[in-house]
Simulated assay, not measured.
Amino acid sequence: MSPLPFPEPTNPANSRAEVFIGYLDFFRSRVIDKIRSLPEHELRTSRVPSGWTPLELVKHLTYVEFRWIEWGFQGRRTENPWGDRKDDRWYVDPSETAEELLQNLQAQGHHTTTVITTTDLSERGQPGPRWRGAEPATLERILFHLLQEYARHLGHLDIVTEQAHAQTGE
């Protein structure tokens, strides 16, 4: 699979939705490429004082999209919206494989893309526990939040992959 090119601001786009999809797809693809560039032993090893591992970051990003798009915006009921956490930190069960976690991230991304392409960006989310009593945010506001989550965590992963002598750069 060839890497997605960076969605340059000068590239034509037909809509704001297309811009969001382009950036989210790019960031998601870079996370996946960086995870695949790491040796197996690095995937469950932390190189940072906070203790997170690359696979925990992947699972966290999957759940971030799930929490904001499905649980929040769509108002879907879920038993465990915080399934990426255990004992107040990110968690990946030893039985979960890298490929399974990457497939889950891609599947969540496909769902997010479907929501973006079928919904007006000004539409507000469904009332529910995600909002903690506040008025639900618009899809556009949620997507801005997702972009900053991906950009921030991809930056974290850049540092970790560089320390592991794996893929560096965008």
Rank of each mutant, 00 (worst) to 15 (best):
F27V: 06
R28E: 07
V31I: 13
D33T: 01
K34F: 01
R36V: 00
R36P: 01
S37T: 00
L43D: 03
R44S: 04
P49A: 01
P49Q: 00
S50L: 13
S50Y: 11
G51R: 00
G51N: 00
T53F: 09
T53I: 07
T53D: 10
E56Y: 11
V58T: 08
L61N: 09
L61V: 11
E65K: 09
E65N: 11
F66A: 07
I69W: 02
E70A: 12
R76I: 03
T78V: 08
E79P: 10
N80F: 04
N80Q: 10
D84I: 09
P94R: 06
S95Q: 12
E96M: 09
E99D: 15
L102M: 10
L102K: 09
Q103D: 14
Q106C: 07
H110G: 05
H111A: 07
T114M: 09
T114G: 11
T114V: 05
T117I: 03
L121Y: 05
L121W: 04
L121V: 06
E123I: 06
R124P: 05
R124H: 14
G125M: 06
G125K: 08
Q126R: 09
G128P: 01
G128A: 02
P129Y: 02
E135K: 13
E135G: 08
L143T: 09
F144Y: 15
F144V: 14
Q148I: 14
Q148L: 14
Q148D: 14
A151S: 15
A151G: 11
R152H: 15
H153C: 05
H156T: 03
H156M: 02
E162M: 03
Q163M: 14
A164N: 02
H165N: 14
H165K: 15
H165A: 14
H165M: 12
Q167H: 06
